[in-house]
Design a protein around this nucleic acid. Sequence first.
DNA 1: ATAACTGTATTATTTATACTAATACAGTTA
DNA 2: TAACTGTATTAGTATAAATAATACAGTTAT
Lengths: 128, 128
Amino acid sequence: MFTIDTRSRVPIYEQLTEKLKELIVREVMKEDEQLPSVRSLAQDLTINPNTIQKAYRELEREGYIYSIPGKGSFVSPVKNEINRERMEMLKKELERIVGEILFLGVPKDEVIKLIETMEEPERSGDDD
Amino acid sequence: MFTIDTRSRVPIYEQLTEKLKELIVREVMKEDEQLPSVRSLAQDLTINPNTIQKAYRELEREGYIYSIPGKGSFVSPVKNEINRERMEMLKKELERIVGEILFLGVPKDEVIKLIETMEEPERSGDDD
DNA sequence: ATAACTGTATTATTTATACTAATACAGTTA
DNA sequence: TAACTGTATTAGTATAAATAATACAGTTAT
């Protein structure tokens, strides 16, 4: 389900939250779908359950998932709030990157051309 | 000269290399210009000289600066190599960011519109 | 030549944080 | 009742960054 780089400078629990956020935001994991249990995921990835728990706790704090003791952890209904926050972050990053590229002398047109050649994602299940 | 966040997860020496790289690539610091000495910069930023040295060593290794024992450290003549590598990195980041934005459902046109509204940098000294 | 700078190198210590380990407790479900 | 769930706590380990304290050699100006 996940690929974790234990040698990365990015902590394991943060790699986990990142990847899970993406799965949730992109709706690969649907609303109310159950996440793997803390212990089973820990066993799968051969890392400590506490590390998983830390990731889940963070995801819950940020509203991506909700947990029910005894039952499990589940994907929260997608809040616009979350997408909005993520968009803000992405836009800021975008501006920083493009800013640097422009500074390096690449004309704006070329940057735009680069984006134009990118493929827009398939949205098979968005017509509901 | 610099702002360092000692609490950031990004190590101090890496913050330093990042910022210096930008100053060099953007030619705020010109070719052969002398950098502050290891000790003086350490005193300015109230951090350990060894940390500065580590940053300088890295910058030298990557070809951004050159050091002469007894004299000081200086900005390397800007190599196209460096700009090329940096561009590669920036383009990859750009694609990742834009990819995520598109996944969040923002149409390509809007991303482009955002970039169009950005100001191109002044290039006062580029006409030589 | 001497003092005050430079970069460079080495070794030891401290500090911060992630991660692991080992439990324990309580709710859920079959 | 057994086997799951999430949650919490406490202690220990590992790693990397940063500090501290020196030392050595080249440069520069007086």
